[in-house]
């Protein structure tokens, strides 16, 4: 039976009461997203520690995507006719890093640099097995759950 699955493994904790993005931390304290198992640090190939990233942050910058991105690689289950513009931004997660993400609010007039944002896991497309894929996105704090992406 079809179910909801993350768009890729190791993107965010799932299923989870409070899902969080997964980053990798090296011994020098630096973080990377998405998580990767190893990285050269000071000439040493280090295994990275899996860590959960903060769920809230501030909007560092943003832009909008008005047209359906070239497909492939884009795999949304919309069509050029049903495509809904979306926004993309970097959200600064305090003490961690800046993460690039889709934003649930597509209207640039309702977004501003410095705005408080929080993580949402939202429906995205359909995988080869007919499962609904889920993607991470950030929403303005206080925005209604599911706004913008048709989630339930």
């Amino acid at each position: 039976m079809a179910q909801q699955v993350p768009l890729a493994e190791d993107l965010f904790t799932w299923p989870a009461e409070e899902p969080a993005l997964i980053g990798g931390r090296s011994s020098d304290g630096k973080l990377v997203f998405p998580y990767r198992s190893h990285k050269l640090v000071g000439g040493v190939n280090e295994e990275l520690e899996r860590v959960e990233l903060p769920r809230r942050g501030t909007l560092w910058t943003f832009t909008g995507q008005r047209f359906r991105p070239p497909s492939p690689p884009y795999a949304g289950d919309d069509t050029p006719k049903t495509f809904e513009p979306f926004a993309v931004g970097y959200v600064e997660l305090p003490g961690a890093l800046r993460v690039e993400a889709r934003l649930t609010e597509a209207d640039p007039d309702k977004l501003h640099i410095g705005q408080e944002m929080e993580l949402r896991i939202v429906p995205f497309g359909t995988d080869a097995d007919g499962n609904q894929t889920l993607i991470y996105a950030f929403a303005p704090v206080g925005a209604e759950e599911g706004h913008g992406d048709g989630s339930e």
Partner: peptide
């Protein structure tokens, strides 16, 4: 348009509609 792997990026990054250089130009000038 290309597969994200040509830039050393994971496949989901392209599937999600993020593998577009134009986003960077909008975000940098903003």
């Amino acid at each position: 348009s290309d597969h994200p792997s040509v830039s050393g990026l994971p496949g989901w990054y392209g599937e999600a509609g993020l593998f577009l250089t134009t986003h960077f130009f909008g975000m940098k000038i903003n």
